[in-house]
């Protein structure tokens, strides 16, 4: 296990190098001059431009710029945004918000998704099952910004159940509605995954054997059916984390959440190379760590899997 974890952590290094290089290259290749974008209609004094170019190494060739950037990262310095803020500060301000939002979304989709999926699977063909499948189909079909705007308009503005935007400091109660919206797509996937997994498990031989031992249904459903059905659902969580990060960009825009998604989106619009690369790097790192955790959890759930 330890050896496996170590190996996986070592694999992070080339992935991270490759990812930063690609992103850095793409940002470098973006059309437009970031400094011109910074100043808008009124051009700055020529000396200022030169000074800024010098400060951000913009006159050096691409590979040298990338090299400077890498050195910074290994020293824990992600650089400075064009508006003069330290990227580290921006990261420290926005990531906790997004992670809170994502965890809340994961919690919502897991609890409700698994519950609905389990009941649907156990009562295959019933009214609950049909409704669950219908709702999940609708949720899968709708783009997340549609779900977001609809929920914001009806649940928050018309009914007043939730706050339509997220206030300063992103308190948990403000994040509930964005988290529900963010969870909606994966919720539908988890319902379907759990449902089919439960149906499959319920038909397996060892479930019949459990009944033949004299166990009650109340014990068999959680212990023998649900427990085994969770294995594919947990695996799904790893890839789902990527979907959540993408969804967060849109959701944070709609609900004005001061998180990673919104900041990244604005940075892309402004062509702020260091900010974009830093954010994406941290996201890639998070994604890798989450997937490693999922793989380790997988071994806990399924004793047949032992990482040597």
């Amino acid at each position: 296990m330890l050896w496996y974890t170590g190996k996986r952590l070592l694999q992070v290094i080339p992935v991270l190098l490759g990812a930063t290089f690609l992103i850095y290259f793409m940002v470098f290749a973006m059309p437009g001059d970031p400094i011109a974008a910074l100043y808008g209609d009124r051009p700055p004094a020529p000396g200022v431009i030169d000074q800024i170019r010098e400060q951000y190494h913009l006159n050096d060739p691409f590979i040298v710029q990338y090299f400077y950037y890498l050195i910074g990262i290994f020293q824990g310095d992600f650089g400075v945004t064009y508006s003069g803020q330290s990227v580290n500060d921006v990261l420290a301000r926005t990531f906790p918000v997004t992670i809170r939002l994502a965890l809340l979304a994961v919690f919502i989709e897991m609890v409700f998704g698994i519950f609905v999926g389990l009941i649907s699977g156990l009562r295959k063909g019933g009214i609950f099952d049909a409704t669950g499948l219908g709702v999940s189909l609708v949720l899968i079909s709708l783009p997340i910004f549609v779900v977001g705007f609809v929920a914001q308009y009806f649940l928050a503005i018309q009914l007043g159940w939730f706050s339509p935007t997220v206030g300063a400091g992103a308190p948990l109660e403000d994040l509930i509605l964005p988290a529900i919206v963010l969870a909606s797509i994966s919720f539908a996937q988890i319902v379907r995954l759990t449902r089919s997994s439960v149906i499959e498990t319920a038909g397996l031989d060892f479930v019949r054997t459990a009944y033949s031992k004299g166990l009650t249904r109340r014990r068999i459903v959680p212990v023998h059916i649900l427990r085994n059905s969770l294995i594919p659902v947990v695996t799904y969580l790893g890839t789902d984390f990527g979907t959540l990060l993408v969804g967060a960009t849109v959701t944070e825009g709609i609900f004005n959440v001061p998180g990673v998604g919104r900041t990244l989106f604005q940075a892309i619009l402004r062509g702020e190379g260091p900010t974009i690369v830093s954010f994406v790097t941290v996201m890639v790192l998070l994604y890798l760590v989450v997937n490693l955790l999922v793989d380790l959890l997988y071994a806990v759930l399924d004793p047949r899997i032992r990482y040597a």
Partner: peptide
């Protein structure tokens, strides 16, 4: 039936490979 199964009627299934839950000891 739950009180009859196991207590009055024991059952030994066919395939030893698939009749034990793989995730429990």
């Amino acid at each position: 039936m739950e009180s009859i199964r196991g207590r009055k009627i024991g059952f030994v299934p066919q395939d030893p490979m698939s009749n034990l839950n793989p995730v429990w000891s």
